[in-house]
Design a binder for these strands. Sequence first.
DNA 1: TGCCAGGCCTTCC
DNA 2: GGAAGGCATGGC
Length: 285
Amino acid sequence: MKNGICIKTNCFNLKYTLECGQCFRWNEVEENTYIGVIKDRVLKVKQDKCNIYVTSNKMENLEQVVKYYFDLNQDYEKIENEIKNIDEHINNALKNSSGIRILNQDFFETLISYIISANNNIPRISKSVNEISRKYGTKVIFENEEYYLFPTANQLKDVSIEDYRKCGVGFRDSYIYDTVNEILAGNIDMDKINEMPTDILRQTLLKLKGVGPKVADCILLFSCQRGEVFPIDVWVERVMSVLYFNETHGKMKKKDILKYADEKFGKYSGIVQQHLFYNMRGKMI
DNA sequence: TGCCAGGCCTTCC
DNA sequence: GGAAGGCATGGC
C-alpha cells in the first residue's frame, strides 16, 4: 500500500471501538474511515472487512503504534467467547457490539480528558479537548490539513485557570490546573505507572483534584491496561440495576454493583462494561 | 423552560 | 462514612 500500511485483524470493529465513548479525538470522514490524533501523530484508518489500512504523518513504528493503540495484540475472539458464556445479557449485547477493543491511550491525555468528562456530555468533552490541543499542543500537518497533538504537561506549565475556562471546561478549570501542576511537580511518576499495582495506582489517581472513583477507573481502563476495572457512570449504573438487580430506577449502590461485577466478570470487567455501556447508550438493551 | 450530561468537591451531620 | 447541594455549559 502506497504511503501506508495494511494490517490484518480479527474480531475488530473500528466503528464500534471509536464510537463507544472511550476516546474523544476521532472523526468519521467517510464510511468506515476515521481520522484521529493520538499521542504523537495523526492517523487515518479505513476498515475493509478483516483489514485496516492506515496512513499517518509519521511512519516511524507505525504498525507497532497502531497495534498497541487498538489493542490488536490481544486475542479478543477468545475473550468474547469467554464473556458470552457468562450470561444471556452479555451474549445479547455482543450481538450488537462484537469487535469493540479497549484502547491503549496516552496516560496524560486520558487523565485530563476524563477530568473534563465529569457531569459532561461526549460532544462537549471532545470540543474542550480539541480546543486545549489547538491552543497549546504541537501542530502537525497531514494531507494538507492542520492537526494538533494533545499538549504535554510541560506545554501547559504557563496556562492559567482562566485560560482553561476559555476552552469550555467550565468548573473543571481549577481541577485541570491543579492536576497539571501535580504532574509537573513529579508527584506522579508517569514512567512507573506500568509497574504499579492497580489499587496503588487508583489511590494515587484519587488524590488528584477532579479525579473520583469513576474517572480513576476510566483512566486505569483506557490508558493503563487494567482490564479488571469496572467504571460506573450513570448509564452503567442504570443498565446494571435493570439487568442484574431488577431495579428500574438506577437505585443500586455502586458498592454492590462493583462487588457483583468483580465476582461475575472478573478480569474481563472492563470489556464487559464497555459492551453494556455501548448497548445501553444506543438503547439496544 | 427545565432537565440532563461517562461526577466530583465541599459542607454538614 | 454517608447524604445533600452546588457547579459551567450547551443540546434537546
